[in-house]
Design a binder for these strands. Structure first.
Length: 469
RNA sequence: CGGGGAGUGGCGCAGUCUGGUAGCGCACCCGGCUGGGGGCCGGGCGGUCGCAGGUUCAAAUCCUGUCUCCCCGACCA
């Protein structure tokens, strides 16, 4: 007998589907303070995969990890005018400590430009100290009016990179390099999500930056999500914090800076891009557990075959988990793994053993069938190898189908109802951007006419507009 | 802050209009049977009905006040 669906179907109510899947797949719970989030082990495991992939590439880009304090003197935030203005509304401020009123309130970091740059000022003296490239894995707090788990929470986890360079060109190259070689790569090659790299408009620019670069993804409902940003700070913070170096000619100069980050928001994208009515779907490159071996019966030969399969897969470097909860109904267990998006399930029961086979279930298309035990490991790895590309292709197809070129603001509005619209920036302009904003549609980014990364000053830029999370 | 809705075992809800001392589903615990898509049968644990006052012989239910949460909009990784 078919049971009622576990999740609200996406087509019925996408936001409800999202809430359902976050809860049923045991990804996260709301924290006790509004806007806070408890990240449960499965979702945290995904985050750890992402961290590893991002961290490796950041280090490849020459940055080193360090840690800066959670609490920042309130006065630091004041030093860069646009930065204060941008963050003031979302600050959490500590006014008491040890039972006493603090002489100077401390803000909980909403981002760490100010405190990190105050140290850059100490550490940078000569051109020989440049480039200085620091990355901080941390939590930050931005008081949110309307939180949504993973997508917009008051406290979230991220990495924030901060660099200082001798020239503007080098800083720009670095900011773009992080966008392309770290963020785009991880999102495309690990998460299996197509993204549009582009330039933020002034309206969407980071508070304190001269240019913000972004990678934008399309979610399952056609809305956009900013998945990573990289900023060129020019000399704004260097001037505010008096960071100076002596160049080869003995002249004092302010360095050119960047900052860049990706956050636990990426988990929201992982859920919303590949999720279906049965749960989330994870690329094997992202999944904490790639293969779940389900022992179906309380039976020694079956248990033995299951354990042996786990060992063989482990030996091949597969992240594999044994599910021997035979006191649970089969349906429950299968559904649980499907909700969580484990890429491959191997079911081993008495029937399989008797027939010398096991059953492989592919989460991507939910196909399932018997495979001879002798070929089990090879076939499993074959399935794993193919899944990432299939997920990527599905998402890319959807994005392509839901992206249209338009020539007027009205057409852009209409198109943004179901996906992305591309409109020449020369036509849209700042006024058009405002008009769209009144209808809840924003310019996600500006791209070159051919869809690639734009030259900042170019006059043939195309705006990608959409509703966004 | 503006507009809507809701607070009743862990979760989802009924009961409120018409006061009579709290119920259902899921989850959880125990036993057995099952075991190939959220299993079945039986037996259990668990709630001072958001909070504070008031009316009444009697309040989840009526009155007053208050707090909180959720959804839609304005700010945002």
């Amino acid at each position: 007998m078919p049971k009622p669906p576990v999740l609200t179907p996406q087509a019925t109510d996408f936001p409800k589907w999202y809430q359902d899947v976050v809860s049923k797949a045991e990804l996260a719970d709301n924290g006790p303070v509004r806007g806070t989030m408890v990240i449960r082990p499965w979702a945290y495991g995904i985050w750890e995969q992402l961290q590893g992939q991002v961290d490796r590439r950041i280090k490849g880009a020459g940055a080193q990890n360090a840690y800066f304090p959670l609490l920042i003197p309130a006065s630091y935030l004041q030093k860069e005018a646009e930065h204060v203005e941008g963050f003031a509304p979302e600050l959490a401020v500590v006014t008491q400590g040890g039972g006493k009123e603090l002489e100077e309130p401390a803000v909980i970091r909403p981002t760490s430009e100010t405190i990190i740059n105050s140290y850059f000022a100490k550490w940078i003296n000569s051109y020989k100290d440049l480039p200085l490239r620091i990355n901080n894995w941390s939590n930050v707090v931005r008081w949110e009016l309307r939180p949504r788990l993973f997508l917009r929470t008051t406290e979230f986890l991220w990495q924030e990179g901060h660099t200082a360079h001798a020239t503007a060109d080098e800083a720009q190259g670095y900011a773009v390099g992080i966008l392309e070689d770290v963020y785009r790569q991880v999102i495309v090659d690990v998460m299996g999500i197509p993204v549009i790299p582009g330039l933020k408009t002034d309206k969407e620019r980071f508070a304190g930056a001269i240019r913000s670069w972004t990678v934008e993804g399309m979610m399952g409902d056609g809305k956009a999500l900013q998945m990573g940003t990289s900023h060129e700070l020019a000399q704004n913070f260097a001037k505010a914090f008096d960071i100076r170096f002596q160049d080869q000619n003995g002249e004092m100069q302010h360095p050119w800076q960047t900052s860049w980050g990706v956050s636990t928001r990426l988990l929201g994208a992982a859920i919303m891009v590949h999720g279906d009515d049965h749960g989330i779907r994870l690329s094997p490159r992202l999944a904490p557990t790639q293969v779940v071996v389900m022992q179906l019966a309380e039976d020694e030969p079956v248990a033995e075959a299951a354990r042996a399969t786990v060992q063989e897969l482990l030996a091949r470097g597969v992240r594999v988990e044994l599910d021997d909860r035979v006191d649970r109904g089969f349906g429950r267990r299968a559904t649980d793994w499907e909700l969580k998006g484990a890429p491959v399930r191997i079911e081993i029961g008495k029937r399989d053993i008797e027939g010398g086979v096991a059953t492989i279930a592919d989460r991507v298309d939910r196909s399932k069938g018997p495979v001879p035990l002798t070929e089990l490991v090879a076939r499993t790895i074959e399935v794993l190898d193919g899944q990432h590309q299939r997920l990527y292709d599905e998402a890319l197809t959807r994005r392509t189908e839901r992206t249209v070129d338009v020539a007027t603001v009205d057409e852009a509005l209409e198109a943004a109802g179901s996906g992305f619209a591309r409109i020449p920036w020369a036509i849209l302009g700042v006024e058009g951007e405002e008009a769209l904003a009144k209808q809840g549609v924003t310019v996600r980014c500006l791209v070159a006419a051919d869809g690639g990364l734009p030259e900042p000053g170019a006059d043939d830029l195309v705006a990608v507009v959409a509703r966004a999370y």
